[in-house]
């Protein structure tokens, strides 16, 4: 400091408070019981403190999820903020668990807390990473599937920030379609 007197460290506030959720699949419990709220934070330092404290995504057991959502939004389709929306889905091949999964997930977290989606950030609800035997997935959830410009621009930003090959398409699935699907494939409303 200029005066020579040590100044207190002031944490860097985030635009939004974010809540981390952890899902572990216990067949003796229902979905809601398995989805646990871990903690909330609203500064950069508290984000890093939490991030360093928990397991990396690649260290989670099969069937587990991490979710990061704006405070007050539950990580489920039925929440008011999510029910008219959908998600951009990044599918990862099994061989990419580890390095790519952790890098992608961290990048998504930095996009969320750093408000990387410019004018469309109001439409962003949160993100989920699913650790699954058949392939891990990262979803970025938005609130309104009908706001096509917002959805597409958010998708573009995701591809840029995650350095996804421009020739590799990613798909946006509306939650209503995911809920209603009869097979294993949900249609992409946007790519």
């Amino acid at each position: 400091s200029v005066s020579g007197v040590p100044q207190p460290y002031i944490k860097h506030p985030l635009q939004n408070m974010w809540t981390l959720w952890y899902y572990e699949n216990d067949r003796n419990k229902n979905w809601e019981e398995n989805q646990r709220e871990v903690t909330s934070f609203d500064t950069v330092e508290d984000f890093w403190s939490l991030f360093h404290h928990i397991k990396q995504a690649s260290e989670l057991k099969q069937g587990c999820d991490y979710s990061l959502f704006k405070k007050g939004i539950l990580p489920m389709w039925e929440d008011d903020a999510n029910k008219r929306g959908g998600r951009w889905l990044i599918n990862l091949e099994k061989k990419h668990r580890g390095h790519d999964l952790n890098n992608y997930w961290l990048e998504v977290l930095l996009c969320l807390i750093g408000e990387a989606f410019d004018d469309y950030h109001e439409d962003v609800c949160g993100a989920v990473v699913n650790i699954r035997a058949k392939g891990d997935k990262i979803g970025i959830w938005t609130s309104d599937a009908l706001k096509s410009q917002s959805v597409v621009e958010i998708g573009r930003k995701i591809k840029t920030r995650l350095n996804i090959n421009p020739n590799m398409p990613i798909g946006y699935q509306i939650h209503k379609d995911t809920m209603a699907k009869s097979g294993s494939v949900t249609k992409n409303t946007y790519t």
């Binding site: 460290y9 985030l14 635009q15 950069v44 330092e45 930095l110 750093g114 990387a116």
Partner: peptide, 18 residues
């Protein structure tokens, strides 16, 4: 209104802050 935006590099810089 205003919005608090953090660049990626800045967030990473704070990773090891006290």
């Amino acid at each position: 209104g205003t919005r608090i935006v953090y660049e990626r590099a800045f967030l990473l810089q704070l990773r090891n802050s006290p």
